[in-house]
């Protein structure tokens, strides 16, 4: 299953980013924490964007949308 892997990946990245954010906040580095969150969102977005493009392509070919 390729698909459910993606879901677990997103959940894993989210949990790791959340932990990093908490640790950095405790260390008094709020700005780095925000940057880590931003980087995590970008990484997950890169993972999702291919699936989303495939979805749009499928719908377009299926319903004759050009």
């Amino acid at each position: 299953m390729n698909g459910i892997d993606l879901l677990f990946k997103i959940a894993g990245i989210g949990i790791i980013v959340s932990i990093l954010h908490t640790v950095l906040k405790q260390a008094g580095k709020e700005e780095q924490g925000q940057l880590v969150t931003l980087a995590g969102v970008v990484i997950v977005l890169l993972l999702v964007i291919q699936l989303l493009a495939g979805f749009f392509e499928t719908v377009r070919t299926m319903f004759n949308l050009y």
Partner: peptide
């Protein structure tokens, strides 16, 4: 924990079910 990741996860779940 992180609501923005939950949003993307919901998106992916919807796409998987559609596929």
């Amino acid at each position: 924990l992180r609501p923005e990741f939950a949003l993307l996860g919901a998106l992916v779940a919807g796409l998987l079910i559609f596929l």
